[in-house]
């Protein structure tokens, strides 16, 4: 039992999208339909020559008060023993209430076409064989094997840091405790477990 969380250090992200590529490959997400479990926004701010360009990786926040879970009628969205929010593909209705409810844009429909296309690409190795709502799983399947999530493991800029928030010695716990890593919009009361340094 752990309480997994992530810190995203925006000071170093260069928007290379290695994370998106890792996630799409690890989890067979429908990149062909421009759907991603993690995206990297490329935001332009200000006026020349005082322009800023900011890269912001987005991901499911694995909220402790997840709006998606509350609203899900079938309990297809559930919380596992490590506090990560997952979706049971088999019982998901595809009512999309969770998509509407999530304040972080973390969810999308793995629809009929996507399932078919994924089968075409991955054949027997296809991980998505039914229509369902899809989202980040904090790569529990890797974490169980002692690995970091795919996006974290590959991030060349050490932007993404993953660990157990309950373990005071973990890098994430330290960063959160120091106050430098902050949740986004704490006023929404979703209690995200993904924190940003910016």
């Amino acid at each position: 039992m752990a309480r997994y969380g992530m810190v995203i250090d925006l000071r170093t992200c260069v928007g290379c999208q290695a994370c998106s590529a890792a996630c799409a490959t690890e989890n067979q997400t429908p990149y062909w339909s421009d759907k991603w479990r993690t995206r990297v926004l490329d935001i332009e701010k200000g006026e020349y020559p005082n322009t800023g360009r900011h890269f912001v990786p987005t991901i499911c926040m694995h909220c402790e008060e997840p709006a998606c879970l509350t609203i899900c009628p079938s309990q297809a969205t559930f919380r596992d023993e490590n506090g990560s929010i997952l979706v049971n593909y088999d019982t998901c209705l595809g009512c999309k209430a969770c998509m509407a409810a999530c304040p972080y844009g973390a969810r999308y429909v793995y629809d009929k076409n996507d399932v078919a296309k994924n089968r075409e690409i991955h054949g027997e190795l296809s991980q998505h064989n039914v229509v369902h709502i899809d989202k980040c799983t904090f790569c529990f399947d890797r974490v169980e094997r002692g690995l970091e999530p795919a996006c974290v493991a590959t991030c060349p800029a050490h932007t993404r840091i993953f660990g157990d928030l309950d373990d005071p010695n973990s890098e994430v716990a330290k960063l959160v405790a120091s106050g430098i890593a902050k949740p986004l919009r704490p006023d929404l009361n979703t209690k995200p477990k993904v924190f940003y340094i910016y």
Binding site: T25, E26, N27, Q28, Q75, F78, D80, E81, L86, N88, Y89, D90, L125, Q127, T137, C139, F140, D141, R142, R145, L147, A150
Partner: peptide, 19 residues
């Protein structure tokens, strides 16, 4: 969801790098 069920559901969701 009860822990047994959670485990069952998770088992079905592998990832590319498994095995």
């Amino acid at each position: 969801m009860n822990p047994r069920k959670v485990e069952e559901v998770k088992k079905k969701q592998g990832s590319s790098s498994r095995e």
